[in-house]
Design a protein around this nucleic acid. Sequence first.
DNA 1: CCGCTCATGTAACTGGTTACATGATTTA
DNA 2: TAAATCATGTAACCAGTTACATGAGCGG
Lengths: 182, 182
Amino acid sequence: MADLTELEACVLGLIWSEGPCTPYRVQQIMKSSPSPHWSGSAGAIYPVFERLEGGGLVRARTRMQGKRESRAFQTTASGLRVLRSWIGPPVSEWAGDLPIDPLRTRVRFLGALSVARQRAFLHDAIAILESKLKDVQTDCRELKKSEDPFPYTMARGAIHVTRARIKWLAEIEAGLDEGNGE
Amino acid sequence: MADLTELEACVLGLIWSEGPCTPYRVQQIMKSSPSPHWSGSAGAIYPVFERLEGGGLVRARTRMQGKRESRAFQTTASGLRVLRSWIGPPVSEWAGDLPIDPLRTRVRFLGALSVARQRAFLHDAIAILESKLKDVQTDCRELKKSEDPFPYTMARGAIHVTRARIKWLAEIEAGLDEGNGE
DNA sequence: CCGCTCATGTAACTGGTTACATGATTTA
DNA sequence: TAAATCATGTAACCAGTTACATGAGCGG
């Protein structure tokens, strides 16, 4: 099977970590994620399952509950192998690249605004990030108790990165004040 | 004109910040960006210019150099207005969302690897991030001198976020050692 | 005159989105 | 019994990608 897309690999990983589960279940997980970068739409998920099954990376066991059919998928040995090699090591160079960030893109053109509006933008953005930080910190405390360490790890990552973004915006704000002789 | 895509807005912003320039020039800028999330392919750029022109956000002045034609675009008043409202304020809620990050996605499924390979992965990833950090720090020192403050600002952002990611991975590494009674 | 850069495009493809459509099971 | 949830899919669309194709101007 050729290279996985990010979505394909993500689905494969979820099937691995969840154990046998239906596409619908994966859909729910993706939708309930705190910041879902994928829509988790049926139109994306089901074709991914078909591709993974076609490549022999997952296998379905159809189980009927009354008249209602549901296909629970699990990773095959080859699927786990592919998942592992997708993760790495080796880690690809692009791992160092900054993730594409809509906030960053906007800051890049902040010069198009009046200084007053630049200030308003930064104030707004910091407030949003700070509230997000609180959410994710709450989340993190709860996840600490669970046995699987990786959801907690994810939350820690979110905290680190969100703090960094706040610090960055605050720094820009300070630079603004300084430049205008405050 | 309806909502801009990120690429459309980015192109509009570049036209604004560069002054009159050809699609080709924008293409070069995108390709030379330290971590280009867009391919900067003609197949993307030229249609974007068409859409922006169609919406009256940019205007072209055809200038001939001998037999060779080139169309230099600049933002219109309406284009600048749209760019400003695209940037904000108000800042949309999703600005707090973590940007989609391939490294994060991989870490999420790190549990699929043996602990030894987890360690190798983290070691690899940290090395890559550290070398990236050096690059961006060098970059930053150079940009500090330039008059336009925003490229420098971008570099500062890159430093903050990259440092945060390193700290995060180091934390995971430490947790690994601790868990295994090192 | 060869190759590089400037410059402009087109065509086929692809992965993911939105919106639609259906029906069984569970719960209030 | 009505509404929510579980469960599976399809069809039209869309933005961006890869690869192709062309040609002028310029430096060695």
